[in-house]
């Protein structure tokens, strides 16, 4: 069984409407975020890798299994969809237990596994209530429980943090990290950038059905030479510091903060800049903090797609 999820020149059209086009990807283990505005193709990509839709062109491989082979695929894949509908009249417990029985589990094993996973998503108290009466966040969690109930190696989660309160959100993110640390694939879609920024090992940026960038956020950022890196520096003698750094040929701009206590520096070579900064520090400047200002998904999106920025 191979260790990656691969898309080879995959396109999907819904009649004349483009879902995704010419997608070639290799997704390694860890947390991978699919980022893009509504309609950019995130859900289509997830539906393609779980076989809910078939590619019009190209091929997909999920750890050596074709998405058109559900009997094998869903033993290793769990998918939490955005579809907010459930078999009528079911409680949360029945929902998960019935789902597990479709995997061939006995009633007792399915019940035990259902309870375990419901506890894991903190829904134990509501397990015997009908899902129809659940809040949005609870429904999100029961879907999450469904996706992880059979302990899959690949988790595909469509907007999994939507509707969660801050506490549950941080617990859920911790859960993602734990799964990723175990070497699983956790593929998360989101249009909320700061969320993705904090949890992802790698990102796939989508716009209008095309993959516009992929990889680790910093790596993607480094490849965008036409947009100088921005660094925020808080230091003493900011005026003198500005004069020193501006002398370097890779620095294209050094702007003083309004309070005079810092600088915004734009450089074409981050490595050279940080080396230079070490030398400057030795000359008696007190540098309180150095922080990159635009190696996050938000900036990437702005640079790559311009106006089509997702929700912040």
């Amino acid at each position: 069984m191979s260790g990656a999820i691969t898309f080879d020149n995959v396109s999907r059209f819904y009649g004349d409407v483009l879902g995704v086009n010419r997608v070639t990807l290799s997704i390694p283990p860890g947390i991978t975020s699919l980022v893009g505005p509504n309609g950019s193709g995130k859900t289509t990509l997830m539906n393609l890798m779980t076989g809910l839709v078939r590619p019009t062109r190209g091929s997909i491989d999920v750890l050596g299994v074709s998405p058109q082979d559900p009997e094998r695929l869903f033993k290793i894949v769990g998918y939490s969809t955005q579809f907010d509908s459930y078999p009528r009249g079911m409680t949360g417990f029945q929902f998960i237990q019935s789902y597990l029985r479709l995997f061939g589990m006995s009633a007792n094993d399915a019940a035990a596994a259902a309870m375990r996973v419901i506890e894991r998503v903190n829904l134990a108290e509501a397990a015997n209530r009908k899902i129809a009466g659940y809040s949005k966040g609870m429904r999100q969690r029961i879907r999450l429980a469904q996706a992880i109930a059979h302990d899959p190696r690949v988790l595909v989660l469509d907007e999994p943090l939507n509707g969660l309160d801050p506490l549950v959100r941080s617990e859920t993110i911790a859960l993602f990290r734990a799964w990723a640390a175990e070497g699983r694939h956790v593929i998360v879609s989101s249009h909320v950038l700061h969320e993705v920024d904090s949890i992802s090992d790698q990102v796939i940026l989508l716009a209008n059905g095309y993959v516009v960038a992929e990889g680790q956020i910093r790596g993607v950022r480094d490849e965008m030479r036409e947009h100088p890196m921005q660094v925020v520096l808080r230091c003493t003698r900011a005026n003198e510091m500005a004069a020193r750094v501006f002398g370097a040929d890779h620095v294209v701009e050094a702007r003083l903060h309004a309070d005079g206590g810092g600088l915004l520096i734009k450089t074409r070579d981050a490595d050279k800049f940080y080396t230079m900064l070490n030398h400057i520090a030795l000359d008696g400047f007190v540098i309180e903090s150095v922080a990159p200002a635009d190696d996050n998904v938000n900036s990437l999106y702005e640079y790559l797609i311009g106006g089509e920025e997702p929700t912040r």
Partner: peptide
């Protein structure tokens, strides 16, 4: 129409 068929299609159930 009820958008609930995926419940089955997300399992290793032969179609």
């Amino acid at each position: 129409l009820d958008k609930s068929l995926h419940y089955y299609l997300l399992t290793p159930l032969r179609r």
